[in-house]
Every structure is written in C-alpha cells, then in structure tokens.
Nucleic acid binder design. Sequence first.
DNA 1: CTAGATACATCAGTTTCTTATGTATGGTTA
DNA 2: TAACCATACATAAGAAACTGATGTATCTAG
Lengths: 114, 114
Amino acid sequence: MSNNSLIKGSLQTIILKLLEENEKMYGYEITQRVKELTGGEIKITEGALYPALHKLEAEGMLTTEIQQVDNRVRKYYSLTQDGQKEVSAKMSEFQRFVGHLQRILDPEWKPGLA
Amino acid sequence: MSNNSLIKGSLQTIILKLLEENEKMYGYEITQRVKELTGGEIKITEGALYPALHKLEAEGMLTTEIQQVDNRVRKYYSLTQDGQKEVSAKMSEFQRFVGHLQRILDPEWKPGLA
DNA sequence: CTAGATACATCAGTTTCTTATGTATGGTTA
DNA sequence: TAACCATACATAAGAAACTGATGTATCTAG
C-alpha cells in the first residue's frame, strides 16, 4: 500500500470499513477515497487491492455487481451479512491492537488521551 | 507475533523502542516484556524475533554483547547511534500512520481524543 | 525422568505486499 | 495526431515478514 510498510495487515480492515460506510464501492474508488482521506500519504496499489478484494469475495465477505458507466466497466463491491459481522470483529481487533501497541511504544499513553 | 496478524510491520519499531527505554536487553527478555505489557495478548514468536534482531544488527542499528549468566549464554542488544536516530524516525512514522488509519477507520476520530 | 522455563537459532511454507506489465476507454495538450 | 494522463479492471514475479516446527543446551520442579 503506502511507502512505509507499517501495518501490513490492515488492508482488509480498510476495505471492509469503507464498505460499511458506503453501501457499495468499486476498486478504483477505494484507492481514491483512501488517498483523499489521508492527504495522499497512504496509497493503495492496485497489485495489493484487487487480490485483496478477490480474496474477500471468495471468503464470502463481499458480493459484486458489474455496471457500465460511460462505456467503462465498473465492478461494485458490497458487504454480505458475513462481511458485516467481520467488520465489527476486525474493528474491535484493530482498536485493541492499537491500544496494546501504544502501551508498548508510549509508556505515558493512557486510553482516553491522544 | 500474536495471533491476529494486524500490523505486521511493527516488530522492528517495538524492538527499537524497548531498547531506547532499557539500554540493553536480550531476545528472550523482549518476548517476555511484550507479553507482560499487553497482558499476554501480543506474543512475539522466536521465529520472528531472532531474524528481526539479526537484521537490525546487520543494518547497524544494534550492537551485541554476549554474557554468561548461570552457565547460560545471553546475547544483549543495545542501540547504536544510527539506531537511536532510527527510533525517533520510526516512532513519528508510526504515530502519523495510526493517525491516518484512525481517519479512515473512525470518521468521528479527531486527534486529541481517543 | 519428564516437563516446563530459560535462551539461543534455523528453516520450510504462507501471506501480503511492491513493482511491472497488460488491456481498454476517453480527455487533454503540444 | 501522437503522447500522455486519468479512469478501470487484472495478473504475475519477486521480496519481505511472518507462523509453526524443529533443534540444541541448561536448570528447576514434581
């Protein structure tokens, strides 16, 4: 994804969370949304994104729907019911993990403060 | 490291930060410290830790010093000057990255709040 | 005398990423 | 009109970081 390679296991979580908020999105849209939300500092590469989307679909987390827009094919992804459950799971896992990391990396850190 | 596999790129950062705070540590000690700091929820496996230590040493971030303690060999690691610079770099990178992730994963999030 | 803790290490295999490449359409610009 | 960039999908080779297993060795506890 971005240049720095911290947090390599978070792409799935990002995809699922964006789809929870947006009902349906296509791949290119996801890359642009992430770029926009981070001021261009996190860039999801296509070589990482598309395999991740295919994997999530194969695992039953996402369904697809193809649309034609201006002679261009778009593949829209949306959450399945399993996918919706997975978002909650991944999000609490993420928050717990960041908490642990903060405790290691910043001994002054307390939950409730930034 | 732990079971969940989020944040795979953070092991180096963890090692460097612990060594910034502790002057010198040996491998097994690092695994125990992390386990202790996270209530057993993050476990650094030896298969991940030792190669990471060797790599950081090869890159000039760490130096080693072997000690005999009760007929047991301990390999103590400490930060070099380059290593000390690297800690600062990795830490600000980490904080920036978590900030970006929070903006994606939690639209309500603002810096200054948890 | 077996099992677990301490302490190091390596290695095969897996996952996840980067970088490059490929196809195709449409707009802009020199 | 050729070159280039944006849009939009996709794959594939190689790198990097991990898991889980295995190995060596010492010491303690049951």
